[in-house]
Design a protein around this nucleic acid. Structure first.
Lengths: 255, 255
DNA sequence: AAAGCCTGTTCCCGCTATTCGAACGCAGCA
DNA sequence: TGCTGCGTTCGAATAGCGGGAACAGGCTTT
């Protein structure tokens, strides 16, 4: 059942990653359970799992398989090859030390935000954000900062692909409201997140832009809503972030 | 060309990961270059790359593909599912703060050591170690600490599979010498690395053992040879590490 | 300007490798 | 001692992977 007449994909590879995805969701599972889940014959699943295990991508303990940490090798490699990340990392540490809050660096890939590096401040909040996690861009400050500086067509494309699903009661789920807000973000240069991704958490995000104006990533500060409010939220943090973002952009241009 | 009569593997998946591996080594590459490298037809490589890209695993910029950070999601997930890691992390931070040196937590998977978490001390050295990197166990302190507490057969199996290749002039490349040293490690409970993985760098490693005695991972402190020598190396650091390792083991048993 | 050469892309055909289902061995349990 | 679950193995059928040739486009060379 090829979805498209042209651009046929390698289905065997797709099923392999269906299994990997299923394994990720279930933490660990056996052959039969996975066969049921993805709708394949037990023998097929068995063959896939043994190949992946032999390749080092899965670990088998008893009769259950789980993802191996070898994926880290690919992931960290991918992250560290992006010049932005190397440049941003020390600045993220700095901002965390200055604000005492949690600071994240986020990349855009395939229309989603990927949290690639986080630094702890003294009073860091722990949210659901985690290294490697992919989040729809409209749901958080860094994401909106990125979205605001993508081309109009890209934004439409991204929203069509990933939707505008809600995360909390405050998440923006209306495209028009979102477009209005992105316009504001574009004017002032940074974005806010007021309990839109986690209840009780506020954040500010500033984009890292390349020479052509498009955003390659964003830096954000997040903290409890009662600490990040008033002028701290609307003035101090944005200033600090814009400064850091600007420095990253400059260092990036000269690297 | 199946390598074995039984246990046939899914070759299409293998070629997909051959491509991923090739892409990792070259950082980024186009269809033709990869086709040459892995010895496949351009059309085949093209089909594989587009499927992987559609899945989000690769990113295409212009006519070059590179690994995407989505691999991080799998890798971090795999890491954080291991209970040891969660327990070890704060202790690793502690030791780094106390020693001011670089501290690593290492897991064993498929007979290789995987650096899964590292903490910076004030005077951290930067070695080639990196999150996700896989290293032969005989080449470093944490690895030898793990090796010493695996069963005799597992050790032989591991050495057969991954060899005893040298990394520096001091790396142990003789199995008998290694077995002797592992015996010593077993007696005193920790292992040294004197310029065996990086010239000018010394390290101490202590295993994290489960109830049955086998090692699930290890914690290590590394620093410049001229700072990590004498009693600091032979007494102070081992004491500190054994204490930390012991605490991790206790917390692990009660989690 | 045009010919050449390099990309990536598409097409289709042939053969192989993937898939399935059934049968097997084994463990735990009634 | 049967039952039922698991993972594993086998063989057969066909779907789909892989290859090669031809195409479109960009860039350099002549």
């Amino acid at each position: 059942m090829p979805t498209e007449s042209t651009h046929r994909s390698v289905e065997t590879v797709e099923t392999a990653f269906d299994l990997v995805d299923a394994l990720k969701e279930r933490d660990s599972a056996g052959v039969s359970a996975l066969a049921d889940e993805v709708g394949l014959a037990k023998s097929t699943v068995h063959r896939h799992l043994t190949t992946l295990e032999k390749r080092g991508l899965l670990v088998r303990e008893g009769d259950e398989y789980r993802l191996s940490t070898w994926f880290l090798d690919y992931g960290i490699h991918a992250r560290d090859r992006r010049p932005v990340v190397e440049v941003a990392r020390p600045k993220v540490d700095e901002v965390a030390a200055e604000t005492d809050e949690k600071v994240w660096f986020v990349l855009e890939e395939h229309g989603l935000g990927v949290h690639v590096y986080g630094a702890e401040g003294k009073h860091s909040v722990t949210t659901h954000a985690r290294i490697g996690r992919r989040t729809p861009l409209h749901q958080f400050a860094a994401g909106k900062a990125i979205l605001a500086f993508l081309s109009e067509e890209r934004v439409a494309e991204v929203l069509d692909r990933h939707g505008v699903a809600g995360q909390t009661a405050r998440t923006i789920t209306d495209r028009d409201v979102l477009f209005d807000q992105l316009e504001t973000v574009r004017e002032r240069g940074y974005a806010f997140n007021r309990e839109e991704s986690v209840t009780g958490v506020h954040a500010v995000g500033a984009p890292i832009r390349e020479a052509d104006g498009t955003a390659v990533g964003a830096i954000s500060v997040a903290g409890p809503a009662n600490r990040l409010r008033g002028e701290v939220l609307t003035d101090e943090l944005p200033d600090l972030l814009l400064g850091a973002a600007n420095e990253i952009e400059i260092n990036l241009a000269h690297s």
